[in-house]
Amino acid sequence: MINDYPQVLTIAGTDSGGGAGIPADVKTMQMRGVYAAMVVVAVTAQNTLGVQDAMPVPEKLIDEQFASIANDLKIRACKTGMLADPLRVRTVVRNLKKYNFGPLIVDPVMVAKGGAKLLSDDAITIVRDELLPLASLITPNIPEACELTGMTIKDKNDIKSVAKELQKLGAKNVLLKGGHAQNKDHADDYVLFEDGNDLWLTAPRINTKNTHGTGDTISACITAEIAKGHSMEQAIMIGKTYVEKTIQKGINVGHGHGPLNHWVKVEGDDINGI
């Protein structure tokens, strides 16, 4: 009976304000009924107003965190978030190749909601060349997808072309989030699956600035659902529904881009019945 409960891993940076990064991942994973472990890659001084400072974790300590988890837990799926710099990205890649932690969801975090850059140019190159080929799913927003591919997005056809290019770079499945598009009424996310099938996920825009941590939250939810045995498509659909509800039923915290309401439940959930 040891290790029979679904366990997941987040590999990312902290957010002292609690709205994004590892705190958002763990809150989401907890609400989705899985046990969350973590590898801390960087520590930030951060709140809803922005990122005030950041410090990467020493390479040796990152290695030791991976080893500690691998020696005791049975991770069924994992995700990456903010990875700081080239050394930290390469350290994470090396450990992901060393240990079998199940399907990998890559959230290529590059810029914080307040505008602070969270990934150096050299690190972006390593994410593209070394981390993406390991990914079962990549979940970039439009600016991140353009940065990774060197392409521009002006319309839906461009979105499809960029998603195909991300697949060529090695990611098996692509969820390209459309929140940064110019449409004021709704946001269109595009999903390109490994087998070539695709779909659009459309949702009305919600008039709020409390969207800090949306990328972390949807990727963490998808990771949790995969660990519970859902297919990639099912996991993405649940993730989309969950993050929509965290925004719709928002909470007011802080003076800037506030966090999501991670306490929400998706209709039909039976978390305790896992």
Rank of each mutant, 00 (worst) to 15 (best):
L87K: 15
M55C: 15
G19Y: 04
A54S: 14
I69N: 10
M31G: 14
A24K: 05
Y99I: 08
K113L: 06
K113W: 04
S120W: 05
Q30E: 13
M110C: 07
A24G: 08
F66A: 02
L83H: 08
L118D: 10
V34T: 12
P58G: 00
I105T: 04
L87H: 15
P108E: 04
I62W: 00
I75K: 08
P56K: 00
S68R: 11
L83I: 05
A112G: 01
A24D: 06
G17T: 02
R90M: 15
T80C: 11
S68F: 12
T91G: 04
D15I: 12
G115D: 03
V92R: 01
G102M: 07
M29C: 12
K27F: 04
K60M: 02
T14V: 06
V40F: 05
A42N: 01
V57N: 00
L96Q: 01
A24L: 05
P86K: 09
K27V: 07
F101C: 08
L118T: 08
T91F: 06
I22W: 07
E64V: 10
L87F: 14
R32P: 08
G17L: 04
V40K: 06
K97H: 14
G115I: 03
R90L: 15
L83C: 07
D25P: 09
V106C: 06
